[in-house]
Design a protein around this nucleic acid. Sequence first.
DNA 1: ACAGCCATGTAACTCGTTACATGATTAC
DNA 2: GTAATCATGTAACGAGTTACATGGCTGT
Lengths: 185, 185
Amino acid sequence: MGQDLSRDLPITAYALLGLLSFGDSLTGYELKQRADRTLRFYWVSPAMSQVYSELERLHDLGLVKSQGDARSTSYSLTSRGSSVLTDWMNTSPVGFPVLKHPVALRLLLGALADPARVTNMLRDHLAALDEERAALEQVRHSLEGQDQPGDPFRYPALVADWGSSYFEHERTIVEDLLRRIHEGT
Amino acid sequence: MGQDLSRDLPITAYALLGLLSFGDSLTGYELKQRADRTLRFYWVSPAMSQVYSELERLHDLGLVKSQGDARSTSYSLTSRGSSVLTDWMNTSPVGFPVLKHPVALRLLLGALADPARVTNMLRDHLAALDEERAALEQVRHSLEGQDQPGDPFRYPALVADWGSSYFEHERTIVEDLLRRIHEGT
DNA sequence: ACAGCCATGTAACTCGTTACATGATTAC
DNA sequence: GTAATCATGTAACGAGTTACATGGCTGT
């Protein structure tokens, strides 16, 4: 029982530690909500069941401590957890982003599909993009007033701006593509 | 033996079928190279071993046919493979992109890291971005002359332009972030 | 001779998902 | 009372990875 301390954790584990690094104590359920609100834009929001199993592992490793009963347990970082996370931030190899883009993948094969399907797909993507962007901007607004240098949410604010700008630009690209597809017909 | 025909294939299987939909016949090895050159920008380039196992499954399902011996086997689409792929293009739910962005994830937690580390990370990301973009633009150039409406590589060209524009914009965002981080210090 | 590429696979393993199951608390 | 939300887990499974193993062919 327990975990092999010599093995590296998956990045998702560090991400969850990161979500716990803002000073509060969260239940698995709340942690999942926070992941849905923020983490999902730059990483992935793990399934509920994975949140619980990951918390169990982190607890076994002594990186988080729990309080409360079986009915409702909340977790917070231990000092070891905090130092492991800081160490990961400072020394782990970063790597290049991986994008799984089902719209681009299908556009690549656009010749195989009904032309109307391609157009609809891109239009639907525009709508989805707007929705996601609105959700992200809501998060961004909730950080206002605590987003200046030295404030606790400065970095989350920077990342949220990054995401917004990404969504905004993606919109203009897709609009462009729609135009190019139609002028050529 | 054989595969359960009622089950859906993973998207990666359709992606591989898609790479075989340009009329030629490829070995597993060549298919992996094509994935490394193109697919990796919008999806993921599967490991060598997965390419082989996926090809075996597609063969079992009658979606690709093989020619050659055990020394070197090349695969091409069957008409069933082609119609399954077209059907997937026209009817499958598309879904929103998933981005796993280790740089953004770490920037979110930037407060925990050495400030120099954050800066270096972003600068390294700029360099990596330029490399990736150069690779993609090389692909794009190889499509020139066959990228007009009606040409075989029109859609791949559109997607390559999408990718280029994405890399370009990501560069400007990161440059902006670097500026914002330094003016606030 | 030796390096590097072409080519094909097997085995073990982890991550992460979906489906399932349970029950308490809160709001209407 | 009943629906939604809060809360926690188990089980089965699939996708995809890394490590390993093999061997032919090509260029120098």
